[in-house]
Design a protein around this nucleic acid. Structure first.
Lengths: 81, 81
DNA sequence: GTGTAGACTGCTGTCGACT
DNA sequence: TAGTCGACAGCAGTCTACA
């Protein structure tokens, strides 16, 4: 407890998602199509406005051809530091 | 064709959560208290009825003293993607 | 100690359209 | 190409309570 500069998991995940999407050279529209979700929803997640559920996380990971746990691992790195 | 990996991420996560909770010798009530969520909600997650959001996953992982990515890794092993 | 149920609040996620 | 807006359905998550 006490004070920490707390980047919420949701926001951190959004940053990770954007980085991975750019690296994969996807547009939000392409990623949304591959993951089977809405394009503007990808935007909301990347901006950290929406906290995705576990099923959405798995969909995104599959679309990006990466393990879900790898995405979470990257997210941890942004939340703790 | 694997053994029996035909589970949705939500259900798989529930199974993993229960296994980890038992291993840590927590009751649902203890875990809920540590994670700062409702006791019956732990039950719903374990049963695969509710899909937790990423923030809840992080709360549970912290309460169990395990990395969130580790929980997801275990979940992958029980999921058919 | 856990599952479930109802009632409730608020957010996830969709959809079309405009910036 | 990405952000946002409003309207909307559905579900995440709370709370109390009972088997």
């Amino acid at each position: 407890m006490g004070k920490y500069k707390d980047t919420s998991p949701g926001k951190a995940f959004g940053i990770v998602l954007r980085e991975l999407r750019k690296k994969a050279e996807f547009t939000q529209e392409n990623l949304a199509f591959e993951a089977g979700i809405e394009r503007n929803y990808v935007s909301l997640i990347e901006l950290g406005r929406n906290q995705p559920t576990i099923s959405v996380i798995f969909k995104l990971a599959k679309a990006l051809n990466i393990e879900p746990s790898k995405m979470i691992k990257l997210t941890e790195a942004k939340t703790s530091k």
